[in-house]
Design a protein around this nucleic acid. Structure first.
Lengths: 267, 267
DNA sequence: ATCCTTTCCGTATGATGTACGGAGTATGTC
DNA sequence: GACATACTCCGTACATCATACGGAAAGGAT
């Protein structure tokens, strides 16, 4: 009943980088002495992902909860991960594996199609694991899957006339778009779940009060466009539409860049 | 010392919509009976913004803290705002006022320039108030400044050949981009502050361990492009570059859309 | 057999948002 | 002028969190 409105979104990039990398790549060396560990790091990460997927909200992934799912004491987790933050980082890299398998049959002959597939792979991944978008990825987790995903995605842009730096920039651009739109979609769903009000219900409650204070003649374009958009989509936003529309524009923008690049002088 | 890794990012869209709208538009009717209120809602919002700006992290904006800044008891705040979530919503709308004043002298004759200015206004706003990017805006706060900003921005796209729905979509696209890039920039800064490690220091610590597990021949393009990007920028990312590069592509994409739109048949 | 590293985890600490209820205050009504 | 009523202010209590600390037990190394 209490503690209702808290929807946390945590950060990555915690303690000792070396230790984190060892966890991500599974190269933590087994110690000689001491009792046999009952778990390995990967199990903790898997359990945490299971909890996160089930709850759809990262703030529900508490150390107590994960420990419970594994049937161990809360503090035992700290034997395998240095902190909750490091755990989240590992969850991210582990989940990137899905996108990697999703990207194995990429169209490398047509970069437009390829880029569309790249976007779609991330899009699907985020919809399956909404909690990923609640992580503040200050520094990307330098894990095997993160890098493998990057490699496959870059393959799409290889040899089409972009510089190395531009290849990275285009990829960043696409990812920023997909992440942003996916985040909005997730946020809408979470808000609905949390408040118990659908968008329509919320509007119904808000409209009368808004009508008292909102003067359409003062905001003519907003009133017109807002209404048009509201009718066209069901509600204030349509992430699906934003995703496709935006991706189209992005691709055309990149194409246009390539055209002016290759045109002025032929070498 | 304790509670180190927590970087929260809270949600908006809490309780009673009608009440929230009254708060945002300052139309809360003064009650007859009872002791004179010592504060008004706007003061609470201002104080909260002051705290957030100072701390650069929304999780530091606790009710206790805001109350302290105002010299009142913690629970007194709940006389003016229904919940922390509603407070955050009000903080957002109040801060949009800055962008509104920033947008008053817009170039409405050239939509490319106009769109660049629109993006720049939001960009500046986010850099001044990084905490804004930690809010999960499930539903936009229906406040006066939010709407005014929307109106001014739409003005840039009025009459250039887009449908109403497209006008909204283009704006969403630009905002998604700006928000996404700004978020990454903020995240990087926050990570540095939180971990006490600059990107360079972090790399220095991570590189040896990564070298043990990373096989360049397995990820040839990533190795090449990653190095090129890392040298070109200082670190793994350059938000400034991503911002300008992306915005250019977006605008070209929209232009290309307009061209194919007007070309096929002249109507 | 002993040592010493390591695992497991109970307890304690200092945070958080806010429900609840009591005390005090000013206004509307008579 | 009296008093009921509605309102503000806020102390206390509760459930929740990550994790510091330190002790008990385990088991390979010597």
């Amino acid at each position: 009943m209490s503690y209702a409105g808290r929807v946390g979104s945590e950060s990555s990039g915690a303690g000792d980088p070396a230790r984190t990398i060892a966890l991500l790549w599974g190269t933590t060396q087994v110690p000689g002495r001491g009792p046999k560990p009952a778990l390995i790091g990967a199990q903790v990460v898997e359990a945490a992902i299971r909890v996160a997927d089930h709850e759809a909200d990262l703030s529900e992934v508490s150390m107590r909860r994960v420990a419970q799912a594994l049937g161990v004491g809360t503090m035992s987790l700290y034997t395998y991960v240095a902190s909750r933050t490091e755990l989240i980082e590992a969850m991210l890299d582990a989940t990137y594996a899905e996108a990697v398998t999703d990207l194995t049959d990429l169209a490398t002959d047509d970069w437009r199609t390829g880029l569309t597939q790249v976007a779609a792979a991330s899009w699907r991944m985020y919809l399956r694991h909404p909690w990923m978008l609640q992580v503040f990825t200050g520094r990307p987790p330098m894990g095997p899957n993160t890098i493998a995903k990057y490699e496959l995605e870059l393959g799409v842009l290889e040899g089409i006339g972009l510089t190395d730096v531009e290849m990275d920039a285009v990829l960043t651009l696409v990812h920023t778009h997909v992440e942003g739109v996916a985040r909005r979609k997730i946020e809408a769903a979470n808000t609905e779940r949390r408040t118990g009000l659908t968008d329509a219900q919320w509007w119904e409650a808000a409209a009368p009060e808004l009508a008292k204070v909102f003067d359409p003649s003062q905001f003519p374009i907003a009133a017109r466009v807002g209404q048009a958009a509201g009718e066209r989509y069901q509600g204030a936003h349509d992430p699906e539409h934003a995703y496709h529309f935006g991706l189209q524009r992005l691709i055309e923008g990149v194409a246009s860049h390539l055209a002016t690049r290759n045109e002025p002088d032929s070498r």
